[in-house]
């Protein structure tokens, strides 16, 4: 899938939780992605975070922290 599109979606989610959850925003974003994103989408952005950080240059700070958390915690089942 298009990583740029995934980044834009994460940024939108992060913008909401930055206001709603404050310092807990990264965890809230990661939880949202776990509950609503299909595993291959999560895998793709986690992989980009790990192997091709430049592709995430437009990712917000909250979004970046969320993907880091997601990568640590998430093991999507196929």
């Amino acid at each position: 899938m298009n990583v740029e599109r995934l980044v834009a979606m994460v940024n939108d989610i992060a913008a909401f939780f930055a206001g709603e959850a404050g310092p807990d925003a990264p965890a809230a974003v990661a939880n949202h992605l776990r509950r609503f994103w299909e595993p291959r989408m999560r895998r793709q952005i986690i992989e980009a975070y790990r192997t091709d950080p430049s592709s995430l240059r437009n990712l917000s700070d909250t979004g970046r922290a969320a993907i880091s958390l997601l990568g640590d915690q998430d093991s999507p089942r196929v």
């Binding site: 899938m1 298009n2 509950r35 609503f36 994103w37 299909e38 595993p39 291959r40 989408m41 089942r77």
Partner: peptide, 20 residues
């Protein structure tokens, strides 16, 4: 049954274009 969420409609289109 699967325990993970599936693709939303726009995700289906993206996944179709990447062949999955």
């Amino acid at each position: 049954l699967k325990s993970e969420p599936g693709l939303r409609i726009p995700n289906m289109f993206d996944a179709a274009l990447d062949g999955s």
